[in-house]
Nucleic acid binder design. Sequence first.
DNA 1: CGCCTGTTTGACGACAGTCAAATTAGGTGG
DNA 2: CCACCTAATTTGACTGTCGTCAAACAGGCG
Lengths: 227, 227
Amino acid sequence: MFDQTATIDRQSVPAGAFHSSPIDSSHVAGSVVRFGRHKAVFRAGDDAERFFEVESGSLMLYRLLDDGRRQLVEIVFPGGICGLTASEAYESDCETLMPTVLRSYRMADLARSDSLRTRVIGQLQRQVSAMHDHAVSLGRKTAEERVCSLIVRLHGVAANAEAAQRSVTLPLTRTEIADYLGLTLETVCRTITALMRRKLLEAGRSKAEITVPNLSKLRAAACCDAF
Amino acid sequence: MFDQTATIDRQSVPAGAFHSSPIDSSHVAGSVVRFGRHKAVFRAGDDAERFFEVESGSLMLYRLLDDGRRQLVEIVFPGGICGLTASEAYESDCETLMPTVLRSYRMADLARSDSLRTRVIGQLQRQVSAMHDHAVSLGRKTAEERVCSLIVRLHGVAANAEAAQRSVTLPLTRTEIADYLGLTLETVCRTITALMRRKLLEAGRSKAEITVPNLSKLRAAACCDAF
DNA sequence: CGCCTGTTTGACGACAGTCAAATTAGGTGG
DNA sequence: CCACCTAATTTGACTGTCGTCAAACAGGCG
């Protein structure tokens, strides 16, 4: 489907890095890797030799069932970690949602760098919390609440970049949104259309762009919680 | 609903502990806390001062929506961690599913003990993987597949305890199963009944006990993946 | 024995899924 | 720059799985 070639760009560790904090027995900066949109970072079943930290861009992690059903299990934004697993092989597929810069570490780097460990723990905490919210969406929310929850979250993540803008650029196609929210493509379309009719959303200049006229109303429609 | 009192039992740190590995600046053993069945460990909104490691027993973490909908976001078995959050307050409620022994740590202990950090990272990896599987169940599996997946998992966890037994003791009520699987109580009942008619399950001596005549058939009905 | 909680079963309805077709958007090459 | 081609999105009609409402049943404990 997509070209799976990435522009791999192993930057050398900055010279000064070798002389910093004495706490780390070795200096682990990771290697920078760049990917275009919709490139595979790793595949389920690949040897899990490395894990990744998102510098910019975003990723999706998904699992496939034998019969083709797909579930996006996580969307990873800058600062997030993926591919860190205790098992031999990755258990999900990982693809970029947009041009993305990752920092790649060997699994063993975690044992070497105390600062990396600390960073990873903080990040895993945040990701677990996001996954709890996601479980609530999948298990207990209606289609409309799920769509609103996702847009509220994407709005929050984009807030830095687009300042106080009310416009949100969806990094996901309708199919990806559906696979993240446990719905079908058709239900996602119909739901977005309905939200526009009700003025909770407004069309942007492309299908991937949406304007949020009233964030608190949207948040209410998402059914209260964190995002 | 339940008596929220726990038997708290702050054990002193073993004497020898103060003289071990020089890497940890302080020696963090945590305090042992014991709870009966269906006791609250913490509530959403409580100050998140401590996190917990399950020594024996099991826990459920759940979130409630304003209108009363509930979603169990995690079931935590021995070795598992809960309550570890970057935010000020817990974001879920946590209750025991059976009499349970926890080890309680202050959030700050994590910064002090390198061995604790390492253990926590490994555990978070396993829990993230379990949550990914759960997301697949919630988003993409049918009621029957979800029920089978859960029983297969519970069978796996109990395997140590009950050896090669084919019987599984469900630590969850039907309502809790429903709230974990994103179904209703009635659907869970009907699904279990249907599985028994089809001989994928057999009744045990109580409602909470179930016999699995053929694990691989059950696993197939759960739709393939890890659990 | 009786109450309370948890479980089971039934009848019916609704939300979201399936199948199908039309429309739009993007990207490529002439 | 435009025509064309493919992928993505939208909309419609109908179906089915699971939720809702209701009532009966079972089990544990005082």
